[in-house]
């Protein structure tokens, strides 16, 4: 239900992608995320990319271990998805976009 609300108008998705340099995994993650947002969260999503090589001090704040890591800052609660985000379905589950829709079916 909450996700239905989350899906409703006016809700906003604040996503942060942590990378370390322009590695193939990071690039893959970014393009996968971009695609996903365009398809599922069009206009309701803000993506911030943080390069830890440039800002290593930010790693501790969001408890980053793995690279790449996608953090859903909003809506709460905070969720983390690690990996190159190649499995769209898993990402959607991780971001609480998909599971409830599937439940509803």
């Amino acid at each position: 239900m909450s996700t239905q609300n989350a899906q409703s108008e006016g809700d906003f998705w604040n996503l942060r992608l942590y990378v370390a340099g322009q590695t193939p995994k990071s690039q893959a993650a970014f393009s996968n995320l971009k695609k996903l947002c365009d398809e599922h969260l069009k206009g309701k999503c803000h993506i911030e990319v943080i390069d830890l090589i440039k800002n290593p001090r930010l790693a501790a704040g969001d408890q980053i271990l793995a690279i790449p890591t996608l953090v859903r800052k909003l809506p709460e609660p905070i969720r983390r998805i690690i990996g190159d985000l190649s499995n769209t379905e898993k990402v959607l589950v991780g971001l609480d976009i998909l599971p409830h829709q599937m439940e509803n079916i």
Partner: peptide, 28 residues
């Protein structure tokens, strides 16, 4: 002292990754 929180319920894995984030934290 750097507290590294590893909570499985908060982490979803999809695809390839490495622990560069941890390296960066320790290195920093």
């Amino acid at each position: 002292i750097d507290f590294v929180r590893v909570e499985r319920s908060e982490i979803e894995e999809t695809g390839e990754y490495d622990l560069e984030g941890l390296f960066i934290r320790i290195g920093y």
